[in-house]
C-alpha cells in the first residue's frame, strides 16, 4: 500500500508545484495594482502567457548553439527537482535523505549555471551583462543561503530538510526570516535588486538574461522562475513558522496563508520601494548574509549554554 501511495504521490506533488507556481506572480501583480489603484492583469495571466508561448515558434540567434535550448530545460529540471526535495508541512519531501538540503541549494546553482550559459550563447552585450550580474550577486546570495541552512541545521542537529525546518526561538527566527526574505528577493530578481517589469536593459538582471529567448524555451524559463519563487516562499515560511508540528490540515492552511503573506509582502515591497542602484546591491546582500550569520551564531551559542 505504501508503495502505491508513494507511486501516486510523486506525480501529485510535482503537479501541485508546477500548477500552483504561476499563481504567485499573478498575486504579486494584483497586490501592486491594488496599491496603485489600478485594475491590473488577471490573476491567471501567467497561465495564459505560458499557454500562448508554448504554441509559438522559436527564433534563435544565428550564433547560438543547441545549448541555447538545453539551458532553459536544464534550469527547469533543476528547479523542479529542488521543489520535489522541499518538504511540505508534516508530509515531508518527496525524497528525504541526509544532506538533501545541500542538493537543493546546489540544484538552484545548477539552474543559475544553465541560465547564464544560455544567456551567453547569443553573444549579446545585454545578456552578458545580465548573466554577469546574476552570477556575481549569486556569490553573496549563496553564502547567505548556506549560513541560513547551517543555522537551521545547528538548531535541529540534522542535515535532513524534513527535520531541519523546525524554527528556532524567536529572535533567531526573526533574523533568519528577514535574511531569507532578502535572499528571496535577490534570487528571484525582485525589487529592490532587480525590476521584473522594466524594459530598460541596462538595469535588469534576470530579464536581461532571457531577452533572446522565445516560444517554448521562454515559457520554460518563465515557469521555472515562478516555481523558484514558490520554492523560496515555502522555504521562508517553514523556516520561520512551526508548520511541520501542526496537524496536516492546519499545517496546510498555515503554509498556504504564509506563502500568500510572503507573496503579498513582495508585492508591497515592489509598490513602496525603488530599485537600488547596482553598486548598492552587494551592500544589501551583505546585510542579508549578516542577518543569516547572526541567526547562525545565535543558534550555535544558544544551544551551548
Amino acid at each position: 500500500m505504501n508503495t502505491a501511495v508513494s507511486f501516486l504521490e510523486l506525480p501529485a506533488r510535482l503537479a501541485a508545484w508546477l500548477l500552483l507556481a504561476p499563481l504567485l506572480p499573478g498575486i504579486i501583480n494584483r497586490v501592486k495594482a491594488w496599491v496603485a489603484g489600478r485594475r491590473g492583469p488577471p490573476l491567471l495571466q501567467l497561465y495564459y502567457d505560458l499557454a500562448r508561448l508554448w504554441r509559438k515558434s522559436v527564433v534563435m540567434s544565428t550564433l547560438a548553439s543547441p545549448g541555447f535550448i538545453v539551458g532553459p530545460a536544464v534550469a527547469w529540471v533543476a528547479v523542479a527537482g529542488a521543489a520535489l526535495l522541499m518538504p511540505i508541512g508534516a508530509a515531508g519531501g518527496a525524497l528525504s535523505f541526509r544532506g538533501d538540503v545541500l542538493l537543493l541549494i546546489y540544484l538552484l546553482a545548477l539552474a543559475r549555471f544553465a541560465t547564464a550559459w544560455a544567456a551567453l550563447e547569443t553573444g549579446s552585450a545585454f545578456e552578458g551583462m545580465g548573466a554577469a550580474r546574476e552570477v556575481s550577486f549569486g556569490v553573496l546570495a549563496e553564502a547567505a543561503l548556506i549560513a541560513a541552512v547551517l543555522s537551521l541545521s545547528v538548531q535541529s542537529g540534522s542535515t535532513t530538510l524534513d527535520a531541519m525546518l523546525a524554527p528556532s526561538a524567536w529572535p533567531g527566527a526573526v533574523l533568519l526570516a528577514s535574511g531569507l526574505f532578502a535572499v528571496l528577493l535577490a534570487e528571484n530578481c525582485r525589487v529592490p535588486f532587480d525590476d521584473p517589469n522594466t524594459h530598460l536593459e541596462l538595469t535588469m538582471i534576470h530579464e536581461a538574461m532571457v531577452l533572446d529567448h522565445s516560444g517554448p524555451p521562454l515559457a520554460v524559463v518563465l515557469h521555472g522562475a515562478s516555481v523558484k519563487l514558490l520554492l523560496f516562499a515555502v522555504l521562508l515560511s517553514e523556516a520561520a513558522l512551526p508548520i511541520g508540528r501542526l496537524a496536516p490540515g492546519a499545517g496546510a492552511a498555515a503554509l498556504a496563508g504564509s506563502v500568500l503573506a510572503v507573496t503579498a509582502g513582495i508585492g508591497l515591497v515592489e509598490s513602496f520601494m525603488a530599485r537600488f542602484a547596482f553598486r548598492r546591491v552587494p551592500l544589501l546582500l551583505t546585510a542579508a548574509f549578516l542577518l543569516c550569520l547572526f541567526a547562525l551564531v545565535l543558534a550555535w551559542k544558544g544551544g551551548a549554554q
Binding site: 551592500l283 551583505t286 547572526f294
Partner: peptide, 21 residues
Amino acid sequence: GYVPSLLLGAAGTIAAVAVTY
C-alpha cells in the same frame, strides 16, 4: 567602503560575543 566596514563591524560584534563568554 561600506561592505568592508559592515563586515568588519559584524566580525567585531561576533568577536565581542565570543570574548564575553
